[in-house]
Amino acid sequence: MERLNEGWYDLAVSAGLLDENREFLLMLPRGTWTAAVDRRLRHRMHIWHRVRLLDCWDIMGAGAATFLGIRAGYPGFAMLALDNSVWLLADTYESGVGVYAVRDPAVSPGVLRELEWLAREDIYKDRDFRREVTIWLECRQLR
């Protein structure tokens, strides 16, 4: 857990996730289910919460054991810098854990491809989500 926490923190700081007050946005599922249940309910609406990293944090251990993952050491969460300049994702895979940071996600080719695919494929069967993604992509092209 200590190595996972250190790796997450080093990436969060070097990518610029945290502001001067160590605040950022944390994506949580609407409701009180765990990340394991959330994986089965991907079509559910998620909401962002503004949070502050305290001195006694344990995101990959106690956090992942509750609503930030499946269990301790098995994370499943997304975070965003307050100014939207950095998106950070931690997830659990068959062969381990991955933590990724994307700077300027609104202009990232990989993020844009994924959004375009989601708008076309409608894998979540969520018309509102698909409409919002389509509108966002169209507005972005008008700039």
Rank of each mutant, 00 (worst) to 15 (best):
T134K: 05
M1C: 14
Y74C: 04
W48L: 10
R103V: 02
E20P: 11
V97N: 02
W33K: 12
V51Y: 03
W8V: 04
A12Y: 08
M45K: 13
W57K: 06
T66W: 02
R50L: 10
L115H: 02
L112A: 03
L137M: 02
E20N: 12
E114N: 12
M79E: 13
T92D: 12
R71M: 15
W87Y: 10
Y124M: 08
R71F: 15
L11F: 09
W57G: 04
R3H: 08
H43C: 04
L89F: 12
A81I: 08
V97L: 03
Y93S: 10
L25M: 11
P75W: 03
L25I: 02
R127D: 11
R127V: 01
D83P: 03
G63P: 05
E116L: 05
G61K: 04
P29N: 12
L80G: 04
N21A: 08
R44F: 09
V97E: 05
V133S: 03
L26K: 07
Y74A: 10
C56Y: 14
R3F: 12
E121R: 06
A101Q: 08
D126S: 05
D91F: 08
V86D: 10
M45D: 01
W33F: 08
L17D: 09
L80K: 02
D128A: 01
G76M: 06
L28E: 01
E94S: 09
